[in-house]
Structures are given as C-alpha cells and as structure tokens.
Simulated scan of single mutants.
Amino acid sequence: MTHPNSDIKSAVVSAAASSWSDPAAQALERIATALEKLIPAPPPPVDFDAADAFVWHAATASLQPVKQVNRVEMALLRGIDRLRDLLTDNTERFAKGFAANNALLWGARGMGKSSLVKAAHADINARLKGTPAFLPLKLVEIHREDIDSLPALMGLMREVPYRFLIFCDDLSFDAEDTSYKSLKAVLEGGIEGRPPNVLFYATSNRRHILARQMIDNERSSAINPGEAVEEKVSLSDRFGLWLGFHSCSQEDYLAMISGYVEHLGLEIERDQLEREALEWAITRGARSGRTAWQYIQDLAGRLGRAT
C-alpha cells in the first residue's frame, strides 16, 4: 500500500531538485523521509470473515481476530434463567435484523455477567446457522480504557453487512474520568447516532456505572445538585435493558457445582461434594458462579483431571 504522503514527498523533492543544488535536494529528501516515518501508516482493512469474535486495539485502530473465545456453555450457567432468557431474546432479535436494546448487566461479582454475554453470542450463532440470509453475529470486545475510541470503532462497522455486538466488561468510571460523556453521545444523542448494525453490551458491578462518591460529591458541591446528579446517572439510561445479578442462594450454588461435575464427568460422592463445596464458599466469603468454578478447578486437579 502506498503511504499517503509519498506523492507529496516526491513533488516537494522534484520541485527542489529543479531549483536548488543537488546537496540541498538530497538534504530535503532526507528530512522528508524522516518526517514520513513519524506518520503512522493507515491500518490494514479488516477481514471480518476471519473470525466471529474480535478485540479492538485503539492504539493501532485495528481489530484482532479471536479464533477461540474463552467462554462457558449456556447450559452450565445456573441460577440466572430469567436473565439468560431476556438477554438471549434481545440478542436474537438484533441478530435477525429486528429492533433491540443496548444492555447493561450489573450487580454481584462472579455471577456470570460476562459469561452470559459470550454464551448468548455463541448460542445465537449456533442456532441460526444455516438460516437463509443469516450472517454470523460478530462479537467485538473493547477495553474500558479505550472507550474514547468507540466512535472510530463504530465507523469501521457502519457500512459492513455484518451485525456487531460491542462488549465492554467491567465498565466503570472514576471521579476524574470524563470519558463517560463520550459514551453517552455515542449510545444515544450523537449527531451520527449508533449504526443500526451495532449493539452495545456492558457489564458493571455498579448499577449506574459511576462510582457512588461521584454522585455524592455532586449532591454536596454542585450549585444545582439535582441537575448535576441527573447528568451523571443518565449514562445508565442509555441502556434500554437492565439486568441485575444478585448473590446466589446455597441451592443455586450447589446446582452450579453439580452441573460442572456432571459436565466434566468428575467422580465424587455427593455428600463429600456438597461438604467441600460449602466449605470452599465459606473460606472465600461468597457464593457465586466464579467461586463454584474455582472449587471445580481444585477438585479436578485433585482427581487428576483437566478442565
């Protein structure tokens, strides 16, 4: 690919060579070459056929294909049946070209928020594969620190025939961070708006994404506290679908454990399994899907098995 400034460089050097001495023209060429190296080359075109999942790298404005997504099968996500159905239905409507909402999955840590997003993506593609005119839904992960580059990422997708699910895990903003304003504009209200083939899913431990002290500080220091607070919490209003995840019960926790044991074919007495699993949760101070999986990792290792 020809560098965008190579024609300019040639024209400048040619003009100089016709009017200056050879040493001057050579010096000018060296300067032009050095300046050219400081200008980054344009990113290569994206091959969206390379994979069904990508990671966005803002520094190079490029999408890295992910051949194997790190995910849990939908059948292994226990205790979140209603949330699973709501997100899957929303995702399927979008994949089929119908109206759908941006989704915010918020709440207790380790309860399967990001796992559900990845599982829903895989489940939709598997079930709709072979449907006439269906193109695979693409999952694109954007890191929290790259949110400012979201408009550039959406620009790459605007004229592409595929439909994209942009996913940001553990989205939150601290007191000095103002990039949430650009996210608000991109999701709803910007002059271009969100492309019709793009949907945004985010997970967060915070219901309103912003830190609680940010909201409290506005109440205590703003001239009009009500308006200041509204301006900050309105970010979460850009998500039409809110899914709240809460700490699981002991029954759901043990159901997760049993599901993993059955799926992996681990052999252990039920009484021993429940006793060890509950003790594991007590030592961690929490019952969650993540805690259940960590116990299964330990159990499989003790049984000489890989997961």
Rank of each mutant, 00 (worst) to 15 (best):
L171H: 15
L153R: 14
G193E: 04
P132V: 13
R238Q: 04
N224I: 12
Q68P: 06
E92I: 00
A24P: 05
W280C: 03
A281L: 02
S114K: 02
D169Q: 07
Q272A: 12
I296T: 13
L28D: 13
M214V: 15
E279N: 11
L165N: 11
A255S: 06
A75C: 06
P23R: 01
L183F: 14
I268E: 10
A51S: 11
S288I: 10
L183V: 15
E279C: 06
I166W: 05
P43D: 12
A61L: 05
L171A: 13
S247I: 04
A61E: 10
L199D: 01
A53D: 02
I223W: 05
Q213L: 03
D252Q: 10
R290Q: 11
P195Q: 11
S221E: 08
R219Q: 11
G226P: 01
E92N: 00
A281H: 09
F98D: 01
G304D: 08
K232V: 12
R158T: 15
D49K: 08
R30Y: 12
A53M: 03
D85R: 07
V261G: 01
G97Y: 00
Q294A: 14
I296V: 12
L139G: 04
H208Y: 10
N205A: 08
S19R: 12
R238C: 09
A24Q: 07
L128E: 07
I31A: 08
R238K: 13
S14Y: 13
L210V: 15
W56F: 09
E267L: 04
L135C: 03
R82F: 05
R158H: 15
T203L: 00
N125C: 02
H3I: 04
H121P: 01
V55F: 03
L273R: 14
L137D: 04
D22M: 03
A120C: 08
G193Q: 11
E231D: 13
Q297Y: 10
P44I: 12
D169M: 02
A108L: 02
D146T: 14
L86D: 05
G285F: 07
Y162T: 11
G190Q: 06
Q272Y: 09
F173C: 03
V46M: 00
L153C: 05
Q272C: 06
P132K: 01
I223M: 07
G259E: 02
L165I: 10
A17S: 09
R82I: 06
G130M: 02
P136N: 03
E188A: 10
N217Q: 10
K181W: 08
D81I: 02
A286W: 07
G189H: 08
S19A: 10
D177I: 11
T33S: 09
G226E: 10
T33V: 07
G110T: 13
G130A: 00
N70V: 12
E29V: 13
D271Y: 15
R219P: 06
A95R: 00
L165D: 07
Q26L: 02
I268Q: 03
A103C: 06
F200V: 06
D174Q: 13
D148K: 11
K181N: 10
V198D: 01
T203V: 07
E230Y: 15
S221Q: 13
A95V: 12
F173K: 06
S19H: 12
L83T: 15
D237P: 06
I282G: 05
H3W: 11
Y201S: 00
S234Q: 04
R206K: 14
D89R: 02
K181C: 06
L86G: 01
L171M: 09
I282P: 02
A185Y: 14
L116E: 01
V55Y: 05
A222E: 07
